[in-house]
Every structure is written in structure tokens, then in C-alpha cells.
Write a protein that binds this DNA or RNA. Structure first.
Lengths: 230, 230
DNA sequence: GAAATTAAAAATTTCGAGAATGATTGATAA
DNA sequence: TTATCAATCATTCTCGAAATTTTTAATTTC
């Protein structure tokens, strides 16, 4: 393989990578609500057939990242405050329960991983407070954010809960990106994540649930201005 | 469209119907755990191409009704007590929460629909107590059972909760069918459903949650004999 | 000018063939 | 007899073209 081929990153990608890529483009707000997702257009970005894209879009539709209507194809779901709150409430319910089980079952190894994940996330978020071009950091921030929340529930003992949370995390991000500026990044997240960490390490499930609730309560106090429900 | 075309139901089936059909065959235990699901074999049952079956199996994999491994195709997931309990616990968590919200928000119309759904289910379950060939009634019983649980949460205000419960209902049934005799039908369900109905109509969310927990507690007292975890 | 009909264009869905990959069988040798 | 390897078979995966449907544009009619 030549060096020139390296720039052509789209040479040959498996479906899993295409899935991750499109989901990321949705969560980062590049693919905007309402936009139609035509397999024949997207194929150019990934160097594969329309059929392969179609399969990926089907899988994304199962996770509710795109809408699908028979004979009418795929499109990016509308971002509404109603839907965002629905996703948030579901996520708070499940993440609180899963965190409580992790607190009850997690060992010292789990504590160490949670500390490490929080350290990376906090470093990133402090750095982003003063960043010029926020856009450039969103992808990495998203990864660290997910790694922290994933680690929090990683000892809960139920892959069902964990996988459901994974989908909800990205659904939440996607809705947020379509409704608020700065891709949903806020100053307050640093302290909020710290509160979740402390409650988890203190093995206090009630306090942890409350910290999780707090982490998402900003939507109640300060509803996004452009959040018409249609 | 002519009247004659209506009778020819098997001529041309849309993907949604194939999805429902295969999911039902899984929930009723016809397609047994471990069995490989080859698109080229299943196509004969539905008169379409292997590609169409492949897409349906992908969608079933999203709902966790079948396992998918790259380059190795699809197969019916193993039924284990561990997995069954995981699904049960998740379902109890969500159904309790969704029922509580329905109790808080549901109007008289909701009460009426819940009564109607329970009436049909109870009638069916009493009839099945003395039925000779249980197998013949499973499909209808499954529908009535789902309609009752669906109606219970239908006023919760979150389509996310409702759709998640829909998947969990069939996942639970599928695991149960693979682990216990009689497709999971028990004598006790009549009284248990009645307790859920009464608590909901009494607008008592705590009592309703307890009744739901009770409805699934038989797995703790009387673990299925053939439930080796592999 | 507005509404309804018709024609053209674009997108979706289905399908079967060929390429790529994994599984199976049978032969050979230790 | 057991293990290794090669050849064979079956299945999965990818793809582009044909058929169906929807959307858009143009035309006609009231």
C-alpha cells in the first residue's frame, strides 16, 4: 500500500466503523435534524455500495439515531425539548439504578478505573473552558465523557443496562447538539462529574442518584431558547 | 385492489410482517436456542430473497432477539437463567416506573382500556387452565398478555419506555420458552394480573410496583429445573 | 389565480450473481 | 490412533441493475 493511499482513509472500512462514524456525525451535530440520509449520497464518504450504507442506517434506526419510514427512506430525527427530556429521564432512571448496583458490587479495581476515567474527563473539561475553537475538542470530550459514565456502571452486572445506557448516551448527545449551542458543553459539568465520582467512591447510592439527577437538571432551570416543540 | 387479492395473503409480504413472524416463532419456542438462522433456508417460508431475510435478521439482532457475528451469520441466543433474570430485573424496573407515571397521568379512558384488556386476558388464562393442547393457545395468550401490560403503561407519556418494554416483553418470553415447560404459562398469573389491575385502578403506584415484582418472583422461589447456565 | 391532473425525475426496495470467508471432510504422516 | 494440513463444500458478504414507489415539475381546467 502506497503512502498516498493513506490519505484515502475511506479505502475499505467495515460496517462497524461506518456505524460508529455516522453515529458520531449525528452526535456532533454535523448531520442536522430533518436532513434526509440517502444511501446513494453517503456511499461516496465511505467507498462502498448503497446497500452497505442501507444496512448501517437500519442498525442506526434500531438505536433510534435515525428515523426510518417504509418507502420513504431515512432521515435525521427532529430535535425537540420533549424528546430530549424523555431521553434524559430514561437515562437518569437507568444510570441511577446501574450505578447503585455498581456501588454494591464494584471492587477496588472498579474504584481505580473510575478514578482514572474521571481524571481524564476533568482534565479535558477544564482545558475546554478556555479553548478557542470548541469544535475541535468535541470528539475527544465525547469519548472521555462516555468512558466515565460507562465505568460508573461497569460493575452493575447487567449487560442489558449497560448497552441500553450506551444508546441513550448518544441519543442524548444528538438531541442536545440539535438544541443548544456549543454541542452541549457547559462549565458546570466539571463539578457535577466530581460530585458523581465522590458519591460513588463513598459507596452512597442515594447521593450518587441525586448527583446524577443534578447533572441533568440544567434543562429544567434554563430551557434552551430555540427549543420549539416542532 | 380486488377482493381476490385479499385472500392471497402469502403472496407478497412486507418486511415488517416477516419481522413479526420470526419474532413470534422465537417467543413461542419453535426456533430453539443455538439454532442457526440461515437466510437461504428461511427465504422458503416467506417467498422472498435471502437479502430481505438478512435485513430482517439484522433488525431482530438490534432488539437482541437473535445473535449476530460477523462472517458467521445469525443464530438463536442461548437461553440461560442468568440472562432471563437480567431481562426480568430490567423489565420490573421499567414497568414499575412506567406504571407509576401512567397512574399519575392516566384518565378514565385509560382505566376503561385497562379493564377491557384485563378482562380478555383473564378469560383466556382461566380457559387455558383446563385446555388440552396448550400449544394452540399460546399465540393468542401472548397477544392478550402483551396488550394488558402495554395498556398498563400506555399513559406514561414516554414512547421510549413503552418501546423498550415491548422489546423486553418478547425477550422475556423467548428466554422463558427456552427454559421452562408450557411456554411459561402458569396457574398463578390470573391472580397476579388481577393484583396489578387493582393496584393501578386504586392509583397506588407502590402497591402496583409490588404486584409487578410479585408477578415475576416465581423465578426466585422455583428456579426452572433444566436451567443450567450453559 | 388556485386546484387538480399528468408527466418527468429521483429515490427506495428487491433481487440474484459473484467474490470472500469460514466450516468440513479426507488424506497423509508421526 | 492422533494430529496436521490440504482440498472441498457451504455460507456469508458485497454489489450494481431492474422494478416499484414517491417526489417534483409542468400542464390543464375551473
Amino acid at each position: 500500500m502506497t503512502a498516498a493511499a493513506k490519505t484515502q482513509v475511506t479505502d475499505h472500512i467495515d460496517q462497524g466503523s461506518i456505524y460508529d462514524s455516522i453515529r458520531a456525525r449525528l452526535a456532533e451535530g454535523e448531520l442536522k435534524p430533518g436532513k434526509r440520509l440517502k444511501p446513494d449520497e453517503l456511499r461516496a464518504d465511505y467507498g462502498c455500495s448503497a446497500s452497505a450504507i442501507r444496512e448501517v442506517l437500519f442498525r442506526l434506526a434500531c438505536g433510534r439515531f435515525v428515523d426510518f419510514e417504509e418507502q420513504r427512506g431515512f432521515r435525521v430525527p427532529e430535535a425537540t425539548l420533549k424528546r430530549l427530556l424523555e431521553i434524559r429521564d430514561f437515562r437518569v432512571l437507568i444510570e441511577s439504578e446501574a450505578a447503585a448496583r455498581s456501588i454494591a458490587r464494584g471492587d477496588m479495581e472498579w474504584e481505580a478505573r473510575l478514578n482514572a476515567a474521571h481524571h481524564k474527563l476533568a482534565h479535558m473539561e477544564v482545558k475546554m473552558r478556555h479553548a478557542q475553537r470548541l469544535r475541535e475538542h468535541i470528539a475527544i470530550w465525547t469519548r472521555f465523557d462516555w468512558e466515565f459514565h460507562e465505568t460508573l456502571v461497569s460493575a452493575c452486572g447487567s449487560s442489558l443496562l449497560q448497552d441500553t445506557l450506551h444508546d441513550l448516551f448518544y441519543q442524548y448527545r444528538q438531541q442536545l447538539a440539535g438544541l443548544v449551542p456549543d454541542y452541549g458543553f457547559r462549565e458546570g459539568t466539571v463539578d457535577e462529574h466530581k460530585a458523581i465520582l465522590d458519591a460513588a467512591l463513598a459507596r452512597n447510592p442515594e447521593k450518587c442518584a441525586e448527583a446524577i439527577r443534578q447533572h441533568f437538571s440544567f434543562l429544567d432551570d434554563d430551557p434552551p431558547s430555540s427549543a420549539g416543540t416542532v
